[in-house]
Amino acid sequence: MRKRLIWRNRRPFQNAVVFTSPMCGTVMLILGAPPTVAVAMPEPIRIGWQLGLIIAGLIGIAGLLWPGRYATGLGLELASMLMLGAVTSMYAITLGVGGGLAAVTSVSFTTAVAFGSWWRGGELLHDLHRLVEPQRPAPDLAGEFP
């Protein structure tokens, strides 16, 4: 059965990552980037990367805790997931190229986060499509209810 209900904020891994990423970005922005990143990325890309980490996390938190309309929260979450997927992909590529065998663990987990972000982004895209598509309140049942 492929019916799936749209439900929000039932993803502990996503929640953890989304809550962690702005902290990580802030710390790096204040204290400086780790050597791998500093070597691989030039200054503007690095700053953009850290800002992206912070912004994606904040938008993700906003989307998860959005009090208003459901679709808005889902859209914010989608934006956050796209940005987070890009940011973690960048980091995974950097680590994988620069770190070699020593970075297998970190590359694996970072890639997992990136993959999960893209995955969740695809899901959100699908859900939002379902929310936008024209209403069909079961036309053959119209008027059959008491």
């Binding site: 990325m41 796209l82 940011v87």
Partner: peptide, 16 residues
Amino acid sequence: LQVVLSVVGVLGGAGG
């Protein structure tokens, strides 16, 4: 690497 990173970052940021 920089090109790839820039492309990925720009795509992700633009998408977001």
